Amino acid sequence: MSFVSEQTGSGGLNEYIQHHLHQNTIEVFGGGFHIDTWAVSLVLGLFFIAWFAFFARKASSGVPGKGQAFVEMILEFIDGQVKDSFHGDRRSITPLALTIFMWVVLMNAMDLLPLDAPYTAVKLAAGAEVAHSTYFRWVPTADLNTTLGLSVVVFFLILYHSVKAKGGFGFGKELMTAPFHAHNPVVKTLLVPANFGLNLIEYLVKPVSLAMRLFGNMYGGELVFMLIAGLLGGSLLMFVPGVLFNTAWAIFHILIVLLQAFIFMILTVVYIAGAYESH
């Protein structure tokens, strides 16, 4: 029996994809809570903290080792990008950008792991019957809940920095009086709904676009891996072509993994920098 049909029975490619898109979900406060997404995100976040904390404690002024040099290279790269986009005090912005970039990279990179590894592990440990009913999605950024959660945090950070830069009164005034300015009090009052509506749309579009861009790219990449595995993994004859196609897509997907993390990070910095500018 082929590897794909072992998981899906007679359902074919459609059942195979549905199996891999299924989340382990529990009900929390009346809504679905994706355990897979939460667990993988938490582990990767803790891994990032432990990784950088380890080399931060070992940092020395002498010739750094390979591990320390790699961490310093990432820090310098992120700090350089922040410096180019944000011209104020970046002591809190650079750590934020570093956290976003590394966390998103790690979550995206889970897409490069073998798609059927969880099934195989459960099958070896507990048998095929248990494996058939076991679901595990380990790409958190292919879950819209993850990308929306990240973008909502960015949204509140933008609001925080807007109020910090302009004050509560100044921020509220800008919402009502920009981008359409008028000196006549009557005209200025008439323009308030339009100004407020446009500013509201502008603020809401930023987190939505951040979330959908990252989710769309990672979900699409995940589906391509599933299609390759489902179409080319059905027999031993197609094993070698399947490996070649998966490898080719994985190499290309590395660029997507890094690029999407960079875009999410740099747009966050740009949006925060924009909070300090006036219309």
Rank of each mutant, 00 (worst) to 15 (best):
V40Q: 05
F47L: 15
H253M: 14
G242L: 01
L113P: 01
E202A: 11
G9V: 03
A69G: 11
A261P: 10
G12N: 02
G11Q: 07
V4N: 04
T147Q: 05
A261H: 00
P118M: 13
N14M: 12
N145T: 12
F77A: 12
L236F: 07
V130G: 00
K123T: 15
T189A: 15
K83R: 10
F264L: 15
A59L: 09
A59E: 01
H132C: 02
G168N: 04
V71K: 06
M265K: 04
D111W: 04
I100E: 02
A142C: 15
E174G: 09
N24C: 05
V28Y: 00
F245C: 15
L244R: 01
T25E: 09
W249T: 01
E15K: 04
S85A: 15
N195E: 02
E27M: 05
D84P: 00
P64K: 14
M1W: 03
N184H: 12
G12P: 01
S61P: 01
V257F: 07
T147C: 09
Y276S: 15
V130F: 04
F3C: 02
I93T: 13
V152Y: 07
P95H: 06
E27F: 03
V192G: 01
F156D: 09
N24M: 12
G172M: 08
I263R: 10
T37Q: 14
S92Y: 11
L237V: 11
V205S: 06
T8S: 15
D111C: 08
V154S: 09
E222M: 08
F29Y: 12
G9P: 00
H22N: 04
V104L: 13
L21I: 08
F171N: 10
M265W: 02
S162D: 05
A142T: 02
I100T: 10
V63Q: 08
L112K: 05
F55Y: 14
N108E: 12
L124M: 13
G221R: 02
V28M: 07
P114T: 08
V186K: 11
G274P: 05
L98G: 11
A69H: 02
H181E: 13
W138D: 14
K123S: 15
A121H: 03
Y160T: 08
F29E: 11
G234A: 06
D36T: 04
I263G: 14
A126N: 00
A53M: 09
D84F: 00
V63E: 10
L148E: 05
V40H: 03
V192M: 09
G30E: 03
G45E: 04
V122L: 13
G31D: 07
F101W: 06
M176G: 13
P140Q: 00
I49D: 12
L112A: 15
P114D: 14
F169H: 12
N199C: 05
G12D: 02
E72P: 01
V240N: 04
A128Q: 03
A211I: 10
P114H: 15
Y135S: 00
H19T: 13
V153Q: 01
E6F: 05
M212G: 01
D116Q: 13
P207D: 08
V186N: 09
M265P: 12
I158N: 03
F215I: 01
E202F: 04
L150I: 15
A250Y: 03
D36G: 05
L175R: 00
L42R: 06
V269L: 11
A69C: 10
G216Y: 02
G197C: 02
S60I: 09
S162I: 00
T25D: 09
A59M: 08
L223H: 04
F245P: 07
